[in-house]
Design a protein around this nucleic acid. Structure first.
Lengths: 199, 199
DNA sequence: TCTCTCGTTGACACGCTGCCAACGACTCAC
DNA sequence: GTGAGTCGTTGGCAGCGTGTCAACGAGAGA
């Protein structure tokens, strides 16, 4: 790392990017409260006040980071193989597990680290909404979305828990995680048939 | 509320209880960072320093509160009706939904509010472990626990998400939530049959 | 080279947390 | 009943972290 050349004038967008990138590293490694604005400024090679100038608040910067992380990657599910729902669901799960394995640390810090604050919940809800749309479009293009969307969003909660069992606790291996996610995803999509037989 | 009679000497256990009770109310209503030790002390009718005396840290008190909330209620699943796994799972879900509906605010603040800090995760993991044992003992008393425990713990992640869909977002009604939980619980318990057919 | 714009800096004020020594309510022996 | 000791309780202190703000100066255009 060469000398950051403090005080250099930068394009606002580029500067924002640098700060967000640094914050991404710190928040991925440490919990929110353990990261100070001093740390954030130092990581970005910038004066502390600049954090507030761009993001208003340490919390504002954090929210921006969360938004980046949870926004679904560009590569969609367009390249899923044709076939039965089972096959396509399996492929989707495989794709997801690859992505998680690649960004392991970062993804865990979000799946684990968020929540509790209403703003973070809103961001995660927004991200889940998008992800749910993609899943529904890919796996049940014919059926109406509405009855299933909430079920799929709920499914993402299990996805996060299962990821932790796999990556953090080691109580599931990758194969076991895959099996669980496929089992449950199919169960989620096969309902709400049980609505008829409910008490 | 009568005058708290400040400075009155109390049994340490009773005092701890009062502080925890007050903290319970505050943390249920506001996020962690929005609650100051001053608030906590005032709510318990006590000097601020006493918080540190009993719990060392504001965080210590918070952890104690989380522990109280997540520890599974005394009433076990012993009174589930006999019958097929489907019937018993349905009854268990109904029991759970009743409990959630009753403690709505508190339960949401925990299901939502935790995570991010390793200590909180540990407490929640401990609580989930206990809950998983109860579910397994009630629904699959014969089968060995090990292959299923991680699957059931993952299931709890979906339980939390589905609760939020139901109580917060309103995208699921109680019947729909029940159907989803039963569907997924049965899928979770019917595996890991898919382990054989995995790619 | 001069000037203007605005990205950037550093110091200031304030709130919150954890620490600690002194206070005094309660207990128990006499 | 009275005195002394115990320990629950208090309030102020020191340090840290955050948000604000006025001033600086790097870069662009004339």
């Amino acid at each position: 790392m060469t000398a950051p050349a403090r005080g250099r004038r930068l394009d606002p967008d580029a500067r924002r990017e640098e700060i967000v990138a640094g914050a991404l590293r710190l928040f991925a490694a440490h919990p929110y409260a353990a990261v100070s604005t001093t740390d954030l400024a130092q990581e970005a090679g910038v004066a502390r006040g600049l954090i507030n100038h761009y993001f208003g608040t340490k919390r504002g910067l954090y929210l921006e980071v969360v938004r980046r992380l949870t926004t679904i990657p560009e590569v969609a599910v367009a390249e899923l193989p044709p076939g039965t729902v089972d096959v396509r669901a399996g492929a989707a799960v495989d794709w997801f597990l690859d992505a998680v394995e690649r960004h392991r640390g970062l993804w865990l810090s979000v799946g684990t680290g968020a929540a509790g604050d209403i703003d973070v919940d809103a961001i995660l809800a927004e991200a889940d909404e998008i992800a749910a749309d993609r899943v529904l479009a890919a796996l049940t293009p014919d059926a109406p979305d509405d009855p299933y969307r909430a079920r799929v969003r709920s499914f993402f909660g299990l996805v996060r828990s299962a990821s932790r069992e796999w990556l953090v606790r080691g109580t599931l291996d990758r194969a076991g995680t895959r099996a669980l996610l496929v089992d449950v995803l199919l169960a989620v999509l096969s309902g709400p048939a049980h609505l008829d037989s409910q008490v």
